[in-house]
């Protein structure tokens, strides 16, 4: 088995194959980054909506809770299928990449909104009351008082979720999005040994995820002592 790998290696580790893999890693990172950025923005909006108390906004609060609970309770693969076919009813010209981005954004919004909400709830209610008596509006209170105190609680678990999103994007390969896992499959179809191919793919994921995990663990310690 090993002689086969050694014999195959020079053919596998060529410049073009490696560029191919690196590009695929770029796509995986791009998918994850899109998910994280959208997830933070919409997750914050959802968490903020859930922090409102106005009885008029009750239906809106209910809707966002339903959204969050749905997307935290169905498998990402199922989300991908639903988004893909729903989008194709509307238009046939949407790229697979765009569908994958949309799906990961829906997932990340649901999960990150919970992380952000937990962070916001860690800020004492009295801080919000003080802002209220100073005539801060709702959004000013969120941006000037709540978020600057909540981010210490938000950041460490957010990193864990970023790693989760990197791993979840591998399922987009099943829709035909040419990211790292898909590239592994196509290299295997070109006759390379699965040992070599999936070894490299696993290493690729590890190289992307591990620094984030370490950074998250480091920040968790740092922020807890600060």
């Amino acid at each position: 088995m090993f002689d086969r790998l050694i014999e195959e290696a020079p053919r596998f580790f060529t410049y073009y194959n490696m560029i191919f893999v690196l590009q695929a890693m770029g796509t995986t990172l791009l998918l994850t980054a899109a998910g994280c950025i959208t997830g933070f923005i919409f997750g914050f909006i959802i968490a903020a909506i859930r922090a409102t108390r106005d009885p008029l906004l009750k239906p809106l609060r209910f809707l966002v809770i339903v959204y969050v609970e749905i997307f935290r309770r169905i498998p990402f693969l199922v989300t991908l299928f639903i988004v893909m076919f729903a989008v194709q009813i509307v238009s046939r010209n949407v790229s697979l990449f765009a569908i994958a981005v949309l799906s990961i954004c829906m997932l990340s919004t649901a999960f990150l909104s919970e992380v952000i909400r937990a962070g916001m709830e860690s800020v004492p209610r009295l801080q919000i009351e003080a802002a209220e008596t100073l005539n801060f509006g709702f959004w000013r209170t969120q941006f000037r008082v709540v978020l600057p105190q909540a981010w210490k609680v938000i950041i460490p678990p957010a990193f864990a979720f970023m790693v989760m999103f990197i791993k979840d994007t591998s399922l987009a390969s099943q829709m035909g999005v040419i990211e790292l896992t898909f590239t592994g499959k196509s290299l295997m179809n070109r006759g390379f040994s699965p040992f070599l191919v999936y070894g490299v793919v696993l290493a690729g994921y590890f190289v992307m995820s591990y620094p984030l995990s370490r950074l998250g663990a480091y920040l968790e310690k740092r922020l807890a002592s600060a």
Partner: peptide
């Protein structure tokens, strides 16, 4: 914890 389970299973299944 830093690699996707999907790819790990691909490895088991194909390699």
């Amino acid at each position: 914890t830093n690699t996707p389970a999907l790819v790990q299973i691909f490895f088991l299944f194909y390699a």
